[in-house]
């Protein structure tokens, strides 16, 4: 029964995803992509469980730690990059946002 529930959730989330994204202006494609990319870092939840399960196996700990690190890069990098990009979009005549592009 539990498996069926998981598939149930999966199916509904799929339809919800289509409905949510279907009408996004092309200007926002990049932030949408990098923002959703950050969300895919949710795999960190699985990584945390693997890294924190103290089951006496060094393989699991090593793998778990690596997964936590990688997923965290994905999460932190993804959200910040998206925010930086969105900070650049502005309306005409709007007060210039704070300078936040140290790289260029």
């Amino acid at each position: 029964m539990e498996l069926i529930l998981l598939f149930f959730i999966f199916t509904l989330a799929g339809f919800l995803g289509f409905e949510l994204i279907a009408k996004v202006p092309s200007q926002l494609h990049t932030p949408l992509m990098s923002g959703s990319n950050a969300i895919s870092g949710i795999t960190i939840v699985g990584a945390l469980v693997a890294a924190g399960a103290d089951d006496g196996s060094w393989i699991t700990t090593v793998l778990g730690t690596a997964a936590v690190t990688l997923a965290m890069i994905n999460v932190v990098g993804g959200y910040l990059v998206t925010d930086r990009m969105l900070g650049l979009f502005k309306k005409k005549g709007a007060a210039p946002a704070k300078k936040e592009d140290p790289a260029s």
Binding site: A13, G14, G17, L32, S40
Partner: peptide, 11 residues
Amino acid sequence: LIVAGCLVGTS
């Protein structure tokens, strides 16, 4: 994980 992953997948 299923909900978030699926949302990203469809988007």
